[in-house]
Design a binder for these strands. Sequence first.
DNA 1: GACGCCGGTAACCGCAACGTAACCGAGGCG
DNA 2: CGCCTCGGTTACGTTGCGGTTACCGGCGTC
Lengths: 123, 123
Amino acid sequence: MSEPLPRDLFDPACPSNATPFQIGDKWAGMVLVCLRDQPRRFTELRVPMHRVSAKVLTETLRALERDGMITRTAHDEVPPRVEYALTPLGRTLFPAMDACRAWAAEHLPAVLEARDDYARRSA
Amino acid sequence: MSEPLPRDLFDPACPSNATPFQIGDKWAGMVLVCLRDQPRRFTELRVPMHRVSAKVLTETLRALERDGMITRTAHDEVPPRVEYALTPLGRTLFPAMDACRAWAAEHLPAVLEARDDYARRSA
DNA sequence: GACGCCGGTAACCGCAACGTAACCGAGGCG
DNA sequence: CGCCTCGGTTACGTTGCGGTTACCGGCGTC
């Protein structure tokens, strides 16, 4: 475990959560980002995604596994240890994801300004 | 009106509707694609999106207008004529959208294959 | 006078996604 | 014995997106 995951990667105030882009279901993109550098355990993923219930996180992970984006490896130990890791196919998503994030970094201020203008015009 | 819109751009069997990427709400990306070459009228947009009700299309267009992606121009005529057009900000979305579509074109077969494998393993 | 066109709006509704709370089993530990 | 950890599962409630249906005004047309 080289790097612990940040505690609040997904603060709703974070502008990256206001992008018009979405990957898979609501949390899938965040899972992929968390796995980018190294495999992670279930409870490890729950730290930065503390707004997500175990149930929803499980569903998200199953969907990603089904689509070949990640692998699930259960080690036969007690207490149980399960590791999720990106597949090569999962890694191919990053260039497109990065293009989306670059768009957001560059243009989100303009979107927020447009929203303010619209609200002011309506009022 | 140089080019009529294709009749079934959004066939659910079309692989581009199976991508994990989504832009804005469910139909927003499709509206942007329809406006790429030229402005379009409301009923003109309804042709390729015949699966979308007027209400939902209106909501989608309002959201895009609010965010500064498109403009809405109502001409004071009878019968009414309303034209929707991309703004420069809206056009900035295309490079990222194209990256997403390129990913789909390249990797969707692998996703579908992964799904088949998963279904076979579960059964 | 009835009907149609255009670009919607209003009221209602179903369902899937999302969330919450309780519970589980196998083993270690006190 | 009782409680802890990990990685979930199950049952249940809620929320909100998307869809359906009905209706509108103003003018042209039959």
